[in-house]
Design a protein around this nucleic acid. Structure first.
Length: 916
RNA sequence: GGGCGAUUAGCUCAGGGGGAGAGCGCCACGUUGACAUCGUGGAGGCCGGUGGUUCGAGACCACCAUCGCCCA
């Protein structure tokens, strides 16, 4: 093995071998275990969130595979309708073309070829992360099988009346020219104005003042509404207004919706361009005046002078007009909720169109029940509340999109506007006896999330009754972020229950979202994006700056981004390797919702990798001669096996509970602080001393190699590459069978490995050595200097341990000699305490009396505080009367202990005083 | 307006009724036959505030403050 750990030398080679050998394919006859990957956007690249998520899933998958389960991790990508179409349109724009120049068919061809090109980079990145997905089953949401599934679902829902076509207000994106679902619209506060207009009464007796944030919509007003109980306007209800500029007579109506406190208490009603007004319009049977075209420009419904104007130009023109007519009462500053499309960022317009909808309530009901009754469990549990809140208020789902890229809606129209739904035109004609009358297919495509909702079963061959479905549906757990609980999780549950008659997964593990070191969302325009591959391979500063500033759409941000990047990464990013990155992600997989990615942590985990690497080197160097013969296991040997047992138990527990951070913590703690810090050090005296019998050396060698091998398996789910690389050599040395660590069993806790006696002995040894080290450290004595230790008040147990563990004490504690004081007077010395025993390190030339006195005083002060606290508790009658006996006993024990140590310290201090 | 979450060491975060923990950073000593990507020792916290429950509260409850997210 090389002297230091070099991730780039091993990762690619190991992954290639795993894949070639087919280790990712479900195997054996264990209980099936399955995770379906949340399919990333096929034309994107993996970001930190994907890498985080993949790490969690791969850890779970590897863990279960090693537990002997028949394990499937289903991979795939999503066609991501709007996002992908936009990317390709942007490419066309740079060529000076639009999608209309190509036409629908050619455009779609173009998207497919782009998909082929860019889909590969996701797969490549996924491989770099070590993800053990079954590539043989890679799926895409627009491949042929998916089409079949999508059509079957659509047709069945249509035939059951759960999909319908309807004309109503939708969120219209006037830039992308498509409808959006409620979820795809993000509303944000923006600074705007509130315009107060005077609307003259038809009676000629004055006017009403209405306030609006959207003056341009007044051309479509159908009424003015007031609250029914509003005394100011009670008499006017039923009268009419002459709508300025338009000249239309519109009624004054009463509706509870109106807030009399807001503005003047009079509200203009525009049913065709506002969701609330739409409802009021329906209640009062108002006429709908649609005044926009699909660019959100004024159509022919409006007076000539405004026709063809963009909505914002029309706003200006109308305000000017009101002013000139002296109908503008005032303008106030006002914060307005502005709805924008999540992809285009264009201001979305409520717009009256024909769209396809899923009637959601009949699907939502069983989906709510499935979570309520525990058939599906959210982890952490409180996310189920978020789920319920949405599901209880859910509205019908608009599933049609006026895009070209996506699953085309399987509906045909004849010239009379009749709708025929079926798999294809031929089938539709035959089924409906249409002969050869003209038919045209609906030009819309389905919302991307429609096909995503089928993912857990469509990937497994549904609607055919495949073996995969039988084995792997429902999946065990869905691993995803809370941002898509509504978009995706809820819809999978609804469709799974509807079409598979079972939940799609038993548990939903919701993880946090990765943010930058300041808690900011990572985004291109902020220039704070980290590419997981750059953390694995490292990247030069110039390349990083280039990468971050190149893709920025708003040019003026580039210098700022460059400056921040240069400041944060003055030397670029060093190479950390996949395992270190994965460990970092695991440590961040807590129950929180925001996760700040901190570079300091990944560096620490790279060091941990190096530590493991070198520990393995030590073990291999020292086990070259694994000869046969009698075995005798030392206390240290039995201790480390016992401790490993505990680590295994913890690891199993935490992985089962999706607490990867705690799992890592216990594995890390064991590997670093028990195996490396202590066991390897304790093994050295045994292996390096001439006086140790061969049987005992064999015992230690065997323990070294066996515990290392088991530790590698313990760590494998978290850090697959380095453990595989080391394991290959270790397995050879240990004469183990098996081609790969990833198919070896996960360690089991063995009750026979627990050894309390050995644990007590070695804990005592540790205390002894720590005592010496503390004196050494605080006295600034060089670590290499051998120290004599004199014991006072040693018990019989102490003395027997001294005898049996002398070698460890001397070599690991770097102690020259251990002698026991009989009746003679103790020398001036620095002191450490181990139970009743005192450990004296004589002072001559080594130790400054003043320093030692200060040190002991400080210790005494601290313990004295503890003593007072415990004594205070025991003097408290209420405590004695109420606390459990065990706690009281513990407190009494403490008092005895503290008093003893204080006595020892005081004696020692007096002794030092005598010397000065 | 409704809901959810966060507040613990300089930084990033665990912990969830019976003596405050990790990693990084900081200080000191050090090249000891795996590792300087290192070792050893140390410093550093009224666990956001106020009340309450309890023998006992970072932890449970109420209210408040600050920050953040989701839904209208």
């Amino acid at each position: 093995m090389d002297k230091s750990y070099q991730p780039q030398d091993i990762e690619q080679r190991i992954y290639d071998r795993w894949e070639e050998e087919g280790y990712f394919i479900p195997e054996g006859d264990g209980t099936p275990y399955c995770i379906v990957i949340p399919p990333p956007n096929v034309t994107g690249t993996l970001h930190m969130g994907h890498a985080f998520q993949d790490t969690i899933m791969d850890t779970l998958i590897r863990f279960h595979r090693m537990l002997g389960h028949r394990t499937l991790w289903q991979p795939g990508t999503d066609h991501a309708g709007i996002a992908t179409q936009m990317v390709v349109e942007r490419i066309l724009n740079t060529e000076g073309k639009s999608k209309h120049d190509l036409g629908r068919e050619k455009f779609i061809e173009r998207v497919w070829s782009w998909k082929e090109e860019s889909g590969g980079s996701i797969a490549k990145q996924t491989r770099r992360l070590g993800a053990s997905v079954d590539w043989n089953r890679d799926r895409f949401t627009m491949d042929d099988g998916m089409l079949e599934a999508v059509q079957k679902v659509f047709i069945q829902l249509y035939e059951e009346g759960l999909i319908y076509r309807g004309k109503r207000l939708v969120n219209w994106d006037p830039v992308l020219h498509t409808a959006l679902s409620d979820l795809e619209v993000l509303s944000k506060d923006e600074n705007g104005s509130l315009w107060n207009f005077r609307y003259p009464l038809a009676s000629g007796n004055g006017h009403l003042v209405v306030a609006t944030t959207r003056p341009e919509t007044m051309l479509g007003d159908s009424a003015v509404a007031v609250h029914p109980d509003d005394e100011r306007y009670k008499d006017l209800i039923g009268q009419e207004i002459i709508l300025p500029i338009v000249g239309r007579h519109i009624p004054i109506i009463a509706d509870d919706y109106v807030d009399p406190e807001f503005g003047t208490g009079c509200v203009k009603i525009t049913p065709a361009h506002d969701f609330n007004d739409y409802d009021i319009g329906k209640r009062h049977n108002l006429t709908m005046h649609n005044i926009f075209d699909d660019n959100a420009a004024m159509n022919d419904e409006v007076p000539k002078e405004f026709r063809g104007m963009d909505r914002f130009d029309a706003r200006k023109a109308l305000i000017a007009k009101f002013k000139s007519l002296d109908l503008l009462e005032k303008i106030e500053d006002y914060v307005v909720k502005i709805p924008r499309g999540d992809r285009s960022n264009a201001i979305v317009e409520p717009y009256l169109t024909d769209q396809w909808y899923v009637k959601i309530e009949p699907l939502a009901k069983p989906a709510i029940k499935a979570v309520k009754t525990g058939r599906i469990k959210f982890v952490p549990e409180n996310w189920s509340k978020t789920y319920f809140d949405w599901m209880h208020n859910i509205e019908d789902w608009c599933i049609s999109r006026q895009l070209w890229w996506g699953h085309r809606i399987p509906a045909w129209y004849d010239n009379e506007g009749n709708i025929f739904v079926g798999n294809n035109e031929k089938e539709v004609r035959e089924k409906n006896n249409l002969g050869d009358i003209p038919l045209r297919q609906d030009s819309d495509v389905l919302d991307t999330w429609f096909s995503s909702a089928l993912w857990p079963f469509s990937t497994m061959g549904w609607p055919s009754k495949t073996n995969e479905l039988k084995e792997f549906y429902p999946g065990n757990v869905l691993v995803t972020g809370f941002d898509i609980i509504f978009f995706w999780v809820a819809r999978m549950i609804m469709f799974g229950l509807k079409f598979m008659d079972d939940v799609p997964f038993r548990e939903v593990y919701i993880h946090g979202l990765i943010r930058d070191q300041d808690g900011q969302k990572m985004s291109k325009s902020k220039g704070n994006v980290l590419d997981p591959i750059d953390l694995i391979d490292g990247i030069e500063l110039e390349a990083l700056v280039d990468k971050r500033t190149k893709g920025v759409i708003q040019d003026h941000l580039a210098p700022k981004i460059e400056k921040a990047t240069r400041k944060q990464f003055p030397e670029g990013i060093q190479q950390f390797g996949t395992d270190a990155l994965r460990l970092t992600f695991a440590s961040l997989a807590t129950n929180g919702r925001d996760i700040r990615f901190d570079l300091g942590r990944i560096e620490g985990y790279k060091n941990f990798c190096n530590k493991l690497w070198n520990a393995a080197r030590y073990v291999l160097i020292n086990t070259e001669s694994l000869d046969e013969g009698d075995l005798k296991f030392s206390s240290a040997d039995r201790w480390i096996r016992s401790r490993f047992n505990n680590a295994t138990t913890d690891m199993q527990k935490h992985l089962t509970n999706y607490r990867l951070d705690l799992a890592l913590q216990s594995a890390y703690e064991f590997t670093l602080h028990e195996f490396c810090d202590w066991y390897l050090e304790l093994s050295k005296p045994i292996l390096q001393s001439d006086n140790i019998p061969d049987a005992e050396k064999r015992g230690t060698r065997k323990t070294l190699i066996e515990v290392l091998e088991a530790t590698l398996r313990l760590l494998h789910p978290l850090m697959p590459f380095i453990t595989e690389e080391i394991w290959q050599t270790v397995a050879l040395r240990a004469n183990l069978e098996g081609e790969t660590i990833m198919l070896r069993p996960f360690p089991k806790a063995l009750s026979e490995a627990a050894d309390d006696k050995a644990v007590e002995d070695i804990e005592w040894v540790k205390q002894f050595i720590l005592g010496v080290r503390q004196i050494r450290g605080e006295m600034d004595i060089s670590p290499g200097k051998l120290l004599p230790v004199i014991l006072q008040d040693a018990s019989a147990t102490d003395l027997s341990r001294i005898k049996s563990q002398e070698l460890l004490l001397e070599r690991v504690g770097r102690v020259e000699s251990v002698t026991s004081l009989k009746d003679e007077k103790p020398p001036a010395a620095a002191t450490a305490f181990l139970g009743d025993m005192r450990m004296l390190v004589p002072m001559k030339g080594l130790i400054d009396i003043k320093t030692e006195r200060a040190r002991l005083k400080k210790q005494r002060e601290k313990i004295n505080l503890d003593l007072q606290r415990s004594a205070g508790k025991l003097n408290n009658k209420k405590f004695i009367n109420n606390a459990p006996a065990q706690i009281i006993a513990q407190e009494q024990q403490r008092v005895i202990e503290f008093e003893r140590v204080i006595k020892q310290l005081t004696e020692q201090l007096e002794k030092l005083n005598e010397l000065t």
